[in-house]
Nucleic acid binder design. Sequence first.
DNA 1: TTGAAAGCGCTAACAG
DNA 2: CTGTTAGCGCTTTCAA
Lengths: 337, 337
Amino acid sequence: MTRKKKPTSFDVARMANVHRSAVSRALSGTGRVSEETRERVIKAAQELGYRVNYLARGLHNQNSGLVGLVASRLDTPYRALQVKVAARELLAKGYCPLLIVAEGDAALTGLIDRLLNYNVAGMLVTSDSPPADIIDECKRLSVPVVLVNRDVHDAEADRVQLDITASGRLAFDMLRQAGGQSFAVLEPQEKTYTVSGRARVFAECCRAAHLPVTVIEPQRQNYIDGLEAAELFMAQNTPVDAVFCTTDLLALGFLDGMRVRYNWQVPQDLQILGYDDIEQAGWLGNNLSTIRQDAAAAAMLAVDLMQARIEDPDRTFEVATIPISPVWRGTTRYSPI
Amino acid sequence: MTRKKKPTSFDVARMANVHRSAVSRALSGTGRVSEETRERVIKAAQELGYRVNYLARGLHNQNSGLVGLVASRLDTPYRALQVKVAARELLAKGYCPLLIVAEGDAALTGLIDRLLNYNVAGMLVTSDSPPADIIDECKRLSVPVVLVNRDVHDAEADRVQLDITASGRLAFDMLRQAGGQSFAVLEPQEKTYTVSGRARVFAECCRAAHLPVTVIEPQRQNYIDGLEAAELFMAQNTPVDAVFCTTDLLALGFLDGMRVRYNWQVPQDLQILGYDDIEQAGWLGNNLSTIRQDAAAAAMLAVDLMQARIEDPDRTFEVATIPISPVWRGTTRYSPI
DNA sequence: TTGAAAGCGCTAACAG
DNA sequence: CTGTTAGCGCTTTCAA
């Protein structure tokens, strides 16, 4: 393999008979250059296959154009969509996303740490559990951080969030409207800000209305845990006619478990409500009633927030709320039409 | 916000009473330093919250540690898993993945182009359609490229691939073994190397065995196209008892379409076989028979190939094959047990 | 082992 | 409008 040295601005300058700085001016668009020089430079650059070295540029401007994109559970439909949209938007705005994936705080810390070495212009965190000390570290280095669906105590960061109270309440309202009388809610043992939050609010709504509510606690929040929840559900004896599953993945697992393993009819024997409205919820075989949160919109909001903060680091912190809306499908008896 | 300047190696040097070069040597591990100096430097670095600037380092070494990770259809279960694993492995090996997502060649070209500006150490392409000229450009700049599931004519790149012939044949064998007599195969109009390939081979196998085969052509290869395929299937009149769906997403859509819309029994009225073994194929409600290709293994292979090439740019190009295996579930009548 | 000095490739402030 | 110059922060020869 011929190991050609990459051409530098110097090479281009020589070819175009100008100084390197002229090359820089012509190519970066900033600064004044005569039309003629610009053309000569561009032509020379093309001929040489020259491309600006962003690392060098970044070194000078203190801004590499790199943005950290931190995500856990990337193989989950909701998260995958979110990351895809975030990456797309970032790219469209001229940034370049550095993808960090990790489960577990320990690994995350080390990796985010590495991001900081790249002088990232900002960080988009959609992880379930970004350790708080990392956020602090970013703050210390004045690296903008946008948190998606994360509770942060001291809150010195822009955030895109679900309204937890509204979410739990909407779930309750929907199930009530569908005729539910005695409820259950799935609250994973592995806590997560939004999921545990809406489970809690839902239960509170039930209690406030003096309606019975059973809390079922699967391990985590995936399909398989929904299956586990179905088992747990069968093992307990309280009569329940409506279940809020807090996550579509949980709901789908629970649904399959009840239908396939225990031969229950949904929604006749039991009504089921999910949360997220992932693509699979709408699949004909599932036809899951759920609450839609717009992952794409959330991601775009996050990117906007990030950009705004990069452009004006001193603006006040903003918290954007992700819109949610009821999606009535076949696992509930109510249909608004 | 207090806009602190980041400490540089110079600051650390001053604090530790040594020269900057000593700091570099102590922190990068390369070069000899006395134990005492090393300790002083490390302590000072910690105190100052100093971190090496990888951009500057990269500028010097011509190697930023950045690796391009190019993926289309990231919101698809199979791809999401693949990207997750690839990113994880890259990170584990000390690289940092720059995520490029894009549908459509035009956008891709521009974005990959941008990658090159970052002096990436390599590129992992799992896109459906990486334009050939880009590969050429990378070669020109001697940037290692690893292609996942891509056919490239001139083949001057490492690749991780499915065996198309084996895939089509295995599908045929499975469906035959399950008692299929007259077949159909879903071949998306939007061609893709592996999907179109195995569809073609499957059809050839049928013809070679003098068995009837109908080709159904939905638009693309997603769930919704599977639904469309069900419609197309009903619109044609040839009797068919087994369908190879070429993609799990297609299969799941097709399955739902046939069951829910047309009330067919699967596998009694029709046997269905998917391909990929995405997570959803194993969900109880779907229980799809399929052919498993190990996305995670493929991603890991790709990363290994990439690393090997970076370490030795002159090694001969390698083509690794992704292992496949039959997964018998409920949408076929055959069970090997 | 350590310090001095020369870049890596680029940009921006300053003269001309 | 263009050339000169001085770095950005780091690594790595080369002497000492």
